[in-house]
Design a protein around this nucleic acid. Structure first.
Lengths: 224, 224
DNA sequence: ATTACTTGATAGTATTACTATTATTTTTGT
DNA sequence: ACAAAAATAATAGTAATACTATCAAGTAAT
């Protein structure tokens, strides 16, 4: 089992990189330390030059892996969504009851992330924080339509589709399964941000989790 | 009535500008054309130099009104939330029935924006698009906590609080009124974006509006 | 041993995001 | 109407960013 997990590779759209960072030591250091550095200083202040000095490598070498920092962000967040999707499929495939299935999926999407030992160079906890703080910036751009055509957001959209199917399976007369699915994912990120920065406009805190709020919302919506 | 409206000024935190743009012709042109230009080329590509050439003025003159483009974005979006809050208070204050009141509020927050003739230099329709496409970038920063302390997000939070109170008034045993209120506002923006760019993960389109989805979600949640 | 490939080092460019200074125009107070 | 004050414009300059290009050095594969 452990060996199988260690061989697993989360697939990411190949157009997002010039050279696959999983295929070399330098590539893995780029991924590992870009997560640490973006989490530390934020995406705006993050540059390939700063990353180069962190990993004792050169700016120009990093440019051989990624065209620019925007593509690197898309790579990291795609990896995150791919990893979540993998965990989602794994955790729900054996469940028969649709409501049980949906609840497990919501827990996975909305609960605190834990380190996955299968990917030693990736800190999933910090990567989750990056998704909360930076993911919107990857699509709130003028290039979103062309990049969407290139498939840069396909993993994220596929995850939402899986959730949509689970929603529909609990209530086939509900008319907004896709919107509810995308709202669940977005709300998980947004409430997590509010809890840390705008406490007055959320009920979530150390005791009340976004999971609880979202489960309540979804259950009431689908059961009435 | 018209005269009263023309004298109305939406209050914006004074720390967001160096010189109040409402007090001069140049200031108003900065506001008017920054809305057009940000909508046109996006916030990343927007610079004070480009804005200067659009209004036949100088980069350095714009810097006397706003410290940087981040503060200008905060100004524009604060103005938008202040304007929405004003419309919200105006439209709901005479309504007695809590559900009726909440539904009117949701309509205002989620429906297509229309031009307000009271503010001739501000295109509210484009400004709404800017809020959809750029607002997250104003708080997804490393400076969010210090800027929040300065009160840069107070209008937005006050609007959410008003919505929260309306939610609680319909059902005083509901435990997540703040989170539901912030989710409504965020979902209004997010579904509007998805409708234009990621159609496959929303049910909203030209026929089905985000308003419909959100009203259904909120009603089912609060009535069960 | 030769070749190919990867990485590192250096240099260079256009643009951005400003700051500083000075000149010119406009507004205003008397 | 005129002087003083305020606002705006013009110009120049800086440090950092986001790259591109070139070349050298080290490593691995045949």
């Amino acid at each position: 089992m452990e060996r199988i997990l260690k061989q697993l590779k989360i697939p990411v759209n190949e157009k997002l990189f010039l050279k696959d960072p999983e295929t070399s030591d330098l590539g893995k250091r780029i991924i590992e330390h870009s997560i640490l550095l973006i989490d530390d200083i934020g995406f705006e202040a993050f540059t390939f030059k700063k990353l180069g000095s962190k990993i004792a490598s050169n700016e120009s070498s990093i440019y051989r892996y990624f065209e620019n920092k925007h593509k690197l962000l898309l790579y990291l967040t795609s990896w995150y969504w791919g990893w979540l999707e993998y965990k989602l499929v794994f955790a729900t495939h054996s469940l028969a009851d649709p409501f049980k299935k949906l609840n497990v999926a919501i827990e996975l999407i909305t609960e605190k992330t834990e380190k996955d030992i299968a990917f030693s160079h990736i800190n999933e906890v910090l990567l989750h924080q990056i998704v909360v703080n930076e993911y919107s910036k990857s699509y709130l751009t003028k290039e979103v339509d062309s990049e969407n055509k290139e498939g840069y957001f396909q993993v994220y959209k596929r995850l939402v589709h899986r959730l949509q199917e689970m929603i529909q399976a609990t209530n086939d007369s509900y008319s907004y399964a896709a919107s509810l699915a995308s709202t669940i994912v977005e709300t998980a990120l947004h409430q997590s941000f509010l809890k840390d920065h705008f406490k007055s406009i959320t009920d979530c805190n150390d005791d009340v989790t976004p999971t609880e709020f979202i489960k309540d919302l979804v259950t009431k919506t689908l059961k009435s």
